[in-house]
């Protein structure tokens, strides 16, 4: 069976539609949710009373160590009032927030103890300390790891097929089923992922080197 370019050109608009309307949309919105929620979790784990912090740690680990697909299906049935895409965005946001919380935690831990002591010596308030001294130093080092999680989420978005969201891969399967021909569409979907993710990971690697070089 030989490669047929017609299938590529025929299916491309359909795949791109799924790519923009679902794959990219979910990646962007869920990343934003994960970045903010992850930060809140990391700070809460450092500042909340011990029992609450411990409970939070358990919940975070539980979400991290269980499959996002199962979480998607569970949330899909649990929140029938929401449409599948919204459920997907929320679950991706929460699931990846638990990864990003770990990244922030490592970043916060990497700020030398002397920095905390200096803010105490200067009688700075807790919130001022976090905002003006700790976070600016912590976040910089976390950027590459956060970026890698965004790429990872991007490549996980086809999991949404489990809750009937029509993303790029789902469209590829639909086209493939209609034409009894999967070769070109699946490869095309893979290539589109690669085109988007590879340059991004190269850029992150560059960023990583620059951060390592300037600190």
């Amino acid at each position: 069976m030989s490669w047929n370019w017609d299938h590529v050109w025929d299916s491309l608009p359909f795949l791109l539609e799924g790519f923009v309307q679902v794959t990219l949309l979910v990646t962007v919105v869920s990343s934003a949710i994960a970045a903010v929620l992850g930060l809140l979790i990391a700070i809460a784990r450092r500042t909340a009373p011990a029992p609450i912090a411990a409970l939070l740690t358990f919940v975070v680990n539980f979400i991290r160590m269980t499959p996002i697909v199962v979480q998607l299906v569970f949330a899909y049935f649990a929140f029938l009032a929401l449409d599948a895409l919204t459920v997907g965005i929320l679950v991706f946001g929460v699931h990846y927030a638990t990864y990003m919380a770990e990244v922030y935690r490592a970043g916060i831990d990497s700020v030398p103890k002397g920095q905390w002591e200096a803010t105490t010596a200067l009688s700075m308030s807790r919130s001022r300390t976090w905002r003006a001294v700790i976070m600016p130093q912590a976040i910089r080092a976390t950027l590459p790891a956060l970026g890698n999680y965004v790429i990872s989420m991007f490549k996980d978005t086809p999991f949404l097929i489990a809750i009937t969201v029509a993303d790029m891969v789902s469209n590829a399967l639909e086209y493939g089923g209609d034409h009894f021909r999967y070769v070109e569409v699946i490869v095309l979907a893979g290539v589109l992922f690669l085109i988007a993710s590879y340059p991004t990971s190269l850029a992150i690697r560059k960023l990583e080197e620059r951060i390592a070089f300037t600190t």
Partner: peptide, 11 residues
Amino acid sequence: RGTSLVVQLYL
């Protein structure tokens, strides 16, 4: 690494 696990599964 770049082409998504789900795509590879279908591949």
